[in-house]
Design a protein around this nucleic acid. Structure first.
Length: 891
RNA sequence: GCACGAGUAGCUCAGUGGUAGAGCGGCUGUCUUACACACAGUUGGUCAGGAGUUCGAAUCUCUUCUCGUGUACCA
């Protein structure tokens, strides 16, 4: 017998198996295989990223799917990689520069050297998350790791750009965009989070130039008054109709500006008059264009006032200038009132500061294949789980706007557009650039730089990171790989990137990959929150470090614990207690296996099963079905719950406890059947468990010798055992009889333990039970198992037993159970106990009787339901008369 | 504003028309020879509120409230 530690130590075991699986190429996908294919591409984490709980959830699900698919005999590709994450990575390196003495910025370094620095940083510190994913046990094909800026991927990005440009879907234009004044770049609409914020609404007097009065104008942004070019009123507003065409004096940098009429102004809001500042507000810009107004830009790229005509404000930060401008206006006696006000402010998802609507030259994409993408989800070609996300998706596609794809960044895919050197200055200012300019030979768009680079100047901007990520499912694969594994099977990702990534990938798939969808199923995970329901974030410090959790609970424990509480379709509140349960479960598994290892080997003769054996094997067979169903429906919590309760409750608490004596002192035949059953259960069970707890499953598989019987093949490479051989040769009647007897046995054991507990007898107190048999057949084997389960010295059947007055009794499926307690009998207590039970039963009988005497119920409910109710009633009535008999015996 | 989720035991969650569940926690016992990361027992619920459909509702419908998410915006 091997001496094994009493507690499972995951750390060493997990690392051992991770190394062995990888060195034996267990995760490698073979495109030339003739097995059916199964593929997933990982949502590439940021190369600067570190593992957080969201990754754990997401990648555990992918790993379960991948490992299960391998067991089902599929050739599996799980393709890993990282994203260059333009803004995040650039910011990371800029932060390093700022720490230097003296601090530097990227502008001090220069573009070329800065990009070199980022690459160096990426090589040195990037990809930590890949190591972390390996620690979680992810079975990705690590030989195929891709990066969104590597040599294979980058040309695909440029090619996509060039194609879309040629098609006229990409164009450059001067437009209002979301400007991040900290990062000094444009952002897409999706990167702006509208946030309710408390601000002030200032009402200011604009004097009419002819001195005939004033117009009250409300604004939240007085610092932009210098850029006002008009005041607008609604043409239908009777209060102001006569003023249209007149002029007012702009309160700062005083000059006359016109009063115009525009539908856009709401009569009921504020004063009914709106200042028009086309350079600094999206809708004002439109009003300005419509009315041919001047555009005065008074903000710098980094959000400072650029207005020499107003020296008091010139050079100030936009928020400082806000207060200062109000001081100036008040000093002029033009401030009417200030009110508290709540409005929505666009906040940059990246830098967390309010964005500035800004007119600038940017590249835009009219999305391709929008209709195909919408149809695919609507008609079920692509399945969303949970299904309700399809609605969100459809809604976004309906109102889809052109995508601003250029970023004023240095780290990323540089826009593959070159301008003819002699015309560059002119072209860069052109209000619109498109395919016509390329045809004219003024600009060059291509994957490779132009042949005569000295005559060309490349566009300064880089592409939005998502413009590369949207190509991920196919641009990561070579032709051979694509032939076997594309379209991919499942995509597992968070609903927070449904627009950023999922929707765009679908469009890109149809446009660039032979009109094929990129994946068949999308599984949207829950979002992991803390116990207060807040999103996990670095700044709140409420996000546990998964590596720390792995160190303390094991990767298997973390995976299992998290999946067990991850509901489908709603967010998960993370509770570390749950992870501890995962660890405890691993320990339970380990000890159950250790217990098995302490027993001998079964004989070679065919096992002769007792009912308890048949019962657990039948439950094992059911578990196979439950697991298969749950996984096919992506119900991961059902899967884990089924695994948990089968093993802990059915196998350990009931079955093992019932057969322990077989192993200690059973006849060779009984011992043989028991060992055979145990081995069968463990072998099947570990295979079912392996997708979610791969390390411990593999470890126990090996130490229980299942691998040896199978040419030493790891569980990882073993197909799921079939269920046909389970209970072979037994009829359904045999099985259901055995199940009924075993259920009755466990039920009786429960009652016996209850009796002991009610009389305050310690669990280890050896007592004797006497059973007065009822309808079900009793034999010595059952009685022995009952004694064992109930923690009794003995349990005997005696049909003529006459219990002394006050002997504790209970009704069981096998008959009346007595716990004779010499000298401890308390007639009154016993009477009270039985009376209480009688009351309960009487209530149930009343309820049931009422139901059955309701004609509508009997007539309309399905016959089976009525029958069930009748059976229930008669059972209770039976019990009632027995209890009454007991009570009479006490008197 | 609109859309989509969610509200079940102290906590985290199951439960799609037929006797309200699990784990944890609490409380009582027990270091019983695989496991104290354990075992046995036990305590916890007007299923957010209201109305309706139905013989029967946690479950279906309507409505109110609370929370979350997405989306649109008027200065």
């Amino acid at each position: 017998m091997t001496e094994l530690p009493k507690a499972y130590e995951p750390t060493v075991v997990e690392e051992k198996w991770q190394n062995r699986w990888m060195s034996e190429g267990c995760f490698h996908a073979d495109p030339s295989s003739d097995k059916p294919s199964y593929s997933i591409v990982i949502p590439p984490p940021n190369v600067t990223g570190v593992l957080h709980m969201g990754h754990v959830l997401n990648n555990t699900i992918q790993d379960i799917l991948a490992r299960r698919a391998r067991q089902e005999g599929k050739e599996v590709l799980w393709l890993p990689g990282t994203d260059h994450a333009g803004i995040a990575t650039q910011a990371r390196v800029e932060k390093e520069l700022a720490k230097e003495t003296p601090p530097r910025t990227r502008y001090d370094v220069g573009r070329e050297d800065f990009v070199k620095m980022v690459w160096e940083w990426k090589e040195k510190h990037g990809g930590i998350i890949i190591k972390q994913l390996k620690k979680l046990g992810c079975s990705c094909d690590w030989d195929r790791e891709r990066f969104t800026m590597d040599d294979v991927f980058a040309p695909e990005v440029a090619r996509a750009f060039a194609e879309l440009f040629k098609e006229g879907l990409i164009y450059r234009g001067r437009r209002m965009v979301n400007w991040d004044p900290v990062l000094r770049t444009a952002l897409s609409d999706e990167e702006v989070i509208m946030t309710p914020s408390k601000s002030k609404l200032y009402t200011i007097r604009y004097k009419l130039a002819d001195g005939s009065g004033q117009l009250l104008v409300s604004t939240t942004r007085p610092e932009t008054i210098m850029a006002d070019v008009a005041v607008a009123v609604n043409p239908k507003d009777p209060r102001f109709g006569h003023l249209v065409g007149k002029t007012v004096i702009r309160p700062l940098v005083e000059t006359e500006i016109p009063i115009i009429a525009d539908d856009h102004v709401e009569i009921d809001f504020g004063t009914g008059a709106l200042k028009i500042t086309p350079a600094h507000d999206r809708t004002d810009f439109e009003v300005g264009m419509k009315n041919n107004l001047e555009i005065i830009d008074i903000l710098t790229a980094d959000g400072h006032i650029n207005c020499p005509a107003c020296p008091e404000l010139h050079g100030l930060d936009r928020f400082v200038a806000r207060d200062k401008s109000i001081e100036l206006i008040e000093a002029k006696g033009l401030l009417e009132k200030v009110e508290d006000y709540e409005n929505n402010v666009g906040i940059s998802q990246r830098s967390d500061v309010p964005i500035e609507p800004r007119l600038s030259m940017q590249w835009f994409l009219k999305y391709p294949c929008v209709q195909e993408a919408a149809d695919a989800v609507a008609n079920g070609d692509i399945t969303f789980r949970p299904a309700h996300w399809a609605k969100t998706y459809a809604h976004w596609l309906e109102g889809i706007q052109d995508w601003c794809i250029s970023r004023q960044l240095w780290w990323g895919h540089r826009i593959p557009v070159w301008y003819r050197k002699d015309k560059a200055a002119e072209l860069q200012e052109a209000t619109k650039l498109d395919e016509a300019d390329a045809e004219a030979g003024d600009i060059y768009v291509g994957v490779e730089p132009p042949a005569d680079p000295e005559n060309w100047v490349q566009d300064e901007d880089a592409l939005d990171t998502w413009f590369s990520s949207w190509l991920w499912p196919f641009a990561t694969m070579d032709d051979e790989c694509r032939a076997k594994f594309y379209p991919t099977s499942d995509l597992v990702t968070g609903p927070d990137i449904i627009f950023f990534w999922v929707a765009r990938m679908i469009m890109a798939g149809y446009r660039f990959a032979d009109g094929q969808k990129p994946f068949s199923n999308v599984f949207f995970t829950s979002i992991v929150r803390d116990l207060q329901g807040r999103k996990m974030s670095k700044s709140l410090g409420n996000s546990p470090d998964p590596l720390d959790l792995i160190a303390r609970y094991g990767a298997d424990g973390l995976r299992f614990g998290l999946m067990r509480i991850a509901p489908t379709g709603t967010d998960v509140k993370f509770d570390e207690k749950q992870i501890e349960e995962g660890k405890n479960f691993a320990n339970k598994l380990y000890n159950a296996a250790r217990y098995r290892m302490m027993q001998g080997t079964p004989g070679t003769e065919a096992p002769k099963f007792m009912p308890v054996h048949i019962d657990i094997l039948a439950k094992l067979k059911e578990l196979h079905v439950t697991v298969a169903e749950a996984l096919s429906k992506y119900e991961f919590n059902t899967y884990t719950q089924a695994l948990y309760s089968f093993f802990w409750n059915e196998y350990c608490s009931l079955f093992l406890e019932a057969v322990k004596n077989d192993l200690r002192e059973g006849t060779p035949a009984v011992k043989n059947a028991t060992l055979y059953t145990i081995d069968t259960v463990l072998r099947h069970y570990l295979a079912l468990l392996a997708p979610i707890m791969p390390h411990i499953a593999e470890e126990l598989w090996q130490s229980l010798g299942f691998a040896t019987r199978n040419d030493g093949k790891p569980l990882m490479n073993t197909e799921l055992p079939g269920t046909d051989s389970l209970l072979a040769g037994l009829s359904d009647t045999d099985i259901s009889k055995a199940k009924a007897l075993t259920t009755a046995l466990y039920d009786t054991a429960n009652r016996a333990r209850n009796l002991k507990a009610e009389y305050n007898l310690a669990t280890n107190k050896q007592v004797r039970f006497v059973l007065k048999p009822g309808a079900l057949p009793l034999d010595e084997d059952l009685m022995a198992r009952l004694a064992l389960l109930a923690g009794a010295q003995s349990a005997t059947a005696d049909s003529s037993y006459e219990a002394p007055k006050g002997t504790p009794t209970a009704l069981t499926p096998f008959g009346e159970l007595f716990l004779p307690l010499e000298g401890l009998v308390d007639v009154d207590a016993e009477r009270t106990r039985i009376t209480k039970e009688l009351e309960k039963i009487t209530k149930e009988i009343a309820k049931s009787t009422a139901k059955l005497s309701n004609a509508s119920f009997v007539d309309r409910a399905p016959a089976a339901v009525v029958e069930q109710e009748r059976a229930r009633l008669s059972e209770w009535e039976n019990k009632k008369s027995q209890l009454e008999g007991m009570l009479a015996a006490l008197a």
